[in-house]
Every structure is written in structure tokens, then in C-alpha cells.
Nucleic acid binder design. Sequence first.
DNA 1: AGTTTTACATCACCTGCTTATAGAAGTGTC
DNA 2: GACACTTCTATAAGCAGGTGATGTAAAACT
Lengths: 177, 177
Amino acid sequence: MTTRPPEAGPEAGEAALLRTVTSFDRLLGLLRRLSTPDGLSLTAASTLYRLEEFGAHRVSDLAVAEGVTQPGMTQLVSRLERDGLAERRSDPADRRVVAVAITPAGRELVRHRRRARAAKLSELLGDVSAEERAAIELSLRVLERLAAASPPAAVPVPTPTTTEPGTDPAADPGRGT
Amino acid sequence: MTTRPPEAGPEAGEAALLRTVTSFDRLLGLLRRLSTPDGLSLTAASTLYRLEEFGAHRVSDLAVAEGVTQPGMTQLVSRLERDGLAERRSDPADRRVVAVAITPAGRELVRHRRRARAAKLSELLGDVSAEERAAIELSLRVLERLAAASPPAAVPVPTPTTTEPGTDPAADPGRGT
DNA sequence: AGTTTTACATCACCTGCTTATAGAAGTGTC
DNA sequence: GACACTTCTATAAGCAGGTGATGTAAAACT
């Protein structure tokens, strides 16, 4: 662990990449330690966050965005609906489409979860320097951006209206291609 | 998204923390996109990495280190053993204990996986600036360190010998408390 | 109108965890 | 040195959350 500046040689970057990959594969273990007892799986939480931030989505767009198959997302939406956290709305313009939207209860749970996990994360970051903390915050945002931009471009609702995202019950779930 | 220096006010850190938590919960989706077809779950990969880097571990230590229950780890070890990637050795000093060690085939697979995922990650990081890339590398190492240090301190084998870690078949899997 | 494509749901199945419990081996007590 | 107690791993039963294959209805093409 030499304190190598980022502009080191190219093969040094190669070695660092291998280390980074290892750390990557260990992330799930860390996520498990942050677990909160709200009964929400990681995919469920991420989906709810998305619905809250960007408004209604069609099922297939959610599937791509979360990196699961369409049947998997259909089932997840069914679970969310059963628990009152999301709801299905039919699109009058295209009756094949289902628009999935978050419910007030879903919003409430998202708020609670965010706070609970923030507290846990804050505790976990107790011994971390401000510099490292800043690096974590930056890199997680970058990684999130990468996830959104990667393979088949899972672009959420383009929010064509000027309403608050996710608050418009008639938000157009048009596909994001 | 102002380019705020890390020494900003305390309540600004609070808001950033909430964003960070959200990104955190989305990490699984990103991990799914990196998937390689080697049939290794994230926990399995992380466990193999650990065995490769730090040598033999007892089952319960692995369970703590990976954040799963002891029966869960017993089953994972059984799967690894069935696939020839790890093996159980009995500890003559304490016959309750099982020392789990990686096999040559396991090492081989770890090498392949690391390279395959490094290639995928490298591709994913194509548009990322060197600065952001350095932040990612740093933060992942910090997060890995945090995971290792958090709850009941899952310290691996102290490697009392001077042999290459993980290459000594008789590495003492003494508990790390 | 007939074919093809798109969008979602359903089905059967599997992996990877969980909790509860059992069993075997070490440890401390008297 | 027999007893209770603790520690370590394994087993059993069950559930959540995925997958791939397929069904069904609506839209789009020609």
C-alpha cells in the first residue's frame, strides 16, 4: 500500500485494478452489515428510491435499470404492491403498459430507511478521515452514474412536465429509449 | 451538485450522507452488471479471495467475515468443496474445528475471475476521469477495511509463519479473537 | 386482415440465504 | 474422572428472490 499518486504508470493501474475488483466483490458483505430491519431487499429499496426520485416507470424499464429480468421485476412489483408500497396504473394510451408508482406509504418507508441507514453508515464511518469520506461520497455517485449509463441504457422517465418528480400521478411512463 | 470541499458545514454533510446511502443501496445493481459467467456468487467469490489472500480459515470465522450465518457458511463451503474449489481439513489440535483452504483449482478460478472482472470494470470506467477513478480505488479499499473492522472483528489467520499466505497447507486456522 | 412485435404475467425451478436444532469435542469444577 | 457448560460444525425445513420458458393481450407493420 504505497501512497502512489493516481498518475502512476499504466501497469501500476493494472495492479490497482485487480485490487479494486477484489474490493468490489466484497461489497455485498459490507452491504449486509448495514442491514436495517425494514424487510426491504436491496433491489426493492433501489427500485423504490427510483420511483420516488424519478416518478412512475414501466415494468420493463425498471427491470433494465435494476439489472434484473422482466419476470423478476414483475414479481418484485407484485410484492411491493402487496405491501402497499407501490401501485400499478394502466396507461390509457397503451393498454399493454403498466405504470408503476410509489405510494405515500412507500415514500414514508423510504424516508425511514434512508435515515436509519444513514445513521448506521455514519457510525461505520466514525474512524474515517474527512478526505476518505469525501472520496467515498464522490465515488459512490460516480458508480451510480455508471450503473445508469451502462449496458442497454436504462434511462428513467424523462420527466417532461415541470411537476415535482414522482408526485404527479399521471407522470408519463413512456419508454426511455 | 456544487463542488463542495469536504470541510463544508455539518448539516451539508448530513444531506450528502443521505445521498450516499441511496447510492449505497444501488450498488447491488451495479454488481449485477459486472457479472461473469463463472458460476460464482458474490459471497463465494469473496470467500475464495479471502482464502487465497490470507490462507485457511475456520468456518465460523469465514461466516463472520462475510456477514452470513454459520450454517450459511457451512453450506457455502460444501458447495465450494463439491466444485473442487476449496477443501476441508481437520485440525488435529481441536477436532471440532474445520480448516477451510483453497485448492489449486480454486486459485485458478480466482485468477480468471479477477481478470475477467477487471476487464469489465475497466470498460465500465472508460469515461471516468483519472481523478474519479482514483477516488473509486481509494474508497473501495477504505470500505473493505471498514467491513473487516466492523461488528465482531472478523480477523483472519494471523499468518504466524513466514510462508507465502495461503500456500502453506498446514496454516494454523486458530481463531482470530 | 394477417403477421409480427412489444409488454406484462405466469409457471416451474434453483440458489442462497435464514432459524432452530442436533451432535461431537473441548473446558472448567468439584 | 464424571458432571455440566461451552464451542464448533452440520443438518433440516423453509422462504425470498432470482432465472428461463411460455402464455396472452395489445399495438404496429404490410
